[in-house]
């Protein structure tokens, strides 16, 4: 059972209030009519499926009903950070290599990893 920090409600809530919605930071092709079959198929069906750090979109379905992003480890299931739509992750597979996978960070640490004012374009 996950204990998830909703960056909009600004509190930890139980997993059952949330729904996972798949990979985060996908951008729809600018002009679908101008897309090759490969590019369109890639956009529709091909997702990152890493064994390790993963950025995914969740929705606080039984809370504020807002979408947000989670950086999570797909083996330890540890939630490394949560951040709002439009923001970029501070922890990625590249930046996290030095860090042991299963270090438990405190609630304060996790809340502190929110990025302020980052720019990003996403659906």
């Amino acid at each position: 059972m996950f204990h998830i920090y909703c960056p909009y409600c600004e509190e930890y809530r139980e997993e059952e209030e949330f729904h996972p919605k798949g990979q985060a930071h996908l951008s729809r092709p600018e002009d679908p009519d101008d897309c090759s079959d490969e590019a369109w198929g890639d956009y529709l069906f091909f997702r990152d499926n890493p064994r390790g750090i993963h950025h995914e979109m969740w929705v606080h379905a039984q809370g504020c009903r807002k979408f947000f992003n989670i950086t999570r480890h797909t083996v330890t299931y540890e939630i490394l950070e949560t951040y709002k739509m439009g923001e970029q992750p501070t922890i990625t597979a590249e930046t996290n290599t030095a860090r042991p996978a299963a270090t438990a960070s405190s609630a304060d640490d996790r809340a502190a990893t929110e990025v302020k004012g980052a720019q990003g374009v996403q659906a």
Binding site: M1, F2, E15, E16, H19, P20, N49, R51, H54, E56, R72, T74, V75, T76, Y77
Partner: peptide
């Protein structure tokens, strides 16, 4: 379980 995972375990819910 709706989320991606390689951990061979899921949530109690």
């Amino acid at each position: 379980d709706g989320y991606n995972g390689y951990g061979q375990r899921g949530s109690y819910a």
